[in-house]
Amino acid sequence: MPAISRDEVAHLARLARLDLSDDELSHYAEQLDVILTAVTRVGEVAAQDVEPMSHPVMLDNVFRADVLQPGLTAEEALSAAPAVEDSRFRVPRILDEE
């Protein structure tokens, strides 16, 4: 499956919000190709009837009671923020609605 193109790497970088340089795009295209070629080995295992394991612990129904717990004050919440205005996190302009 690999042979990952530079364009694909650029697409991944956009999805992952990484502003990669041209050099990095080329470098990662090369390295991802090597790594992906290696990990593609998982496909060699016959596993059609095998249940996927998303977790090593077989727990279920781990719930919390619907009871208020003390949280942070606005000051604490905002204390590490790069920019604050009017008790809110100030962020650069958003281009599109979700």
Binding site: D66, V67, L68, G71, L72, A74, A77, S87, R88, F89
Partner: peptide, 27 residues
């Protein structure tokens, strides 16, 4: 209309002052 949020114990009351119903989990 639960008392607390889906994944943490913060209040869900509508109309509170900004960023007063938050904790490490929901931030």
């Amino acid at each position: 209309n639960t008392e607390t949020k889906m994944f943490c114990g913060c209040s869900t009351t509508f109309g509170a002052a900004p960023n007063t119903q938050v904790c490490p989990v929901c931030l």
